[in-house]
Write a protein that binds this DNA or RNA. Structure first.
Lengths: 109, 109
DNA sequence: TCAGGTACTGACCGGAAGGTAAGTGATGGT
DNA sequence: ACCATCACTTACCTTCCGGTCAGTACCTGA
């Protein structure tokens, strides 16, 4: 495996995957339960959501906390690193929002 | 196809793909010939480079200009939209650079 | 004459990413 | 007794992204 060629390369690797940006953005407002995330992020399946959450957890971007209750309660939140990442993502979100129409128009598929 | 759920979603779609961030970053310093890009971006194949360039061109992120010469000369440069994208990408690059070590450490592979 | 540089194009292939559907185990509601 | 909720887990299948390799057309320099 080749080392990252620049910071952008590394960042892209972290937020890579179909659902990670959505997850990051959803957690922006505070901790969320698994089921809440699932409902918030339209179209995601349980398997995909967990998979991506686990990857973000392994990267120390999100924190997973289990409350031993019945029914089980698991909360996901951003770590300090995750919050700093979200800050860095803000301009990109703004860019996308500003050019939404052209981007929708030139979209493949 | 579902509309983009937020600006970040749209932006991620534009810079998605293994080589696009590298291409954007390489063009940051000004127009480049195909061969120059190829040498600058270590590991990319001709097919992949062209494919990604064409996609970026279709999105109006890069501009392609052909000089009818012998040998052929083709230059790629950022459009206005591409430059604004690069500006929005800068904080993300800085974030990646700042946490390069942890990110390398927690990398899968 | 023939390799080498220029900027591509196209056929084929493998693996990984992502999607579908079903099952798990404890508990609370009707 | 039965179903739903919670947070997962597993097996299986399909799609597609990216990689290899070969070929194209043109001209230059040895």
């Amino acid at each position: 495996m080749v080392p990252y060629s620049c910071g952008l390369d590394a960042a892209a690797d972290v937020i890579g995957g179909k659902w990670k940006p959505r997850i990051l953005w959803a957690l922006h407002h505070g901790p969320m339960r698994f089921g809440e995330l699932r409902r918030e992020i339209a179209g995601v399946t349980e398997k995909m959501l967990i998979q991506q959450l686990r990857e973000l957890e392994a990267r120390d971007i999100v924190h997973r906390e289990v409350f031993r209750q019945v029914p089980p309660r698991v909360e996901y939140s951003l770590t300090g690193l995750g919050q700093s990442l979200n800050v860095a993502l803000a301009p990109l979100d703004a860019w996308g929002a500003e050019h939404l129409e052209i981007l929708e128009a030139s979209r493949a598929g």
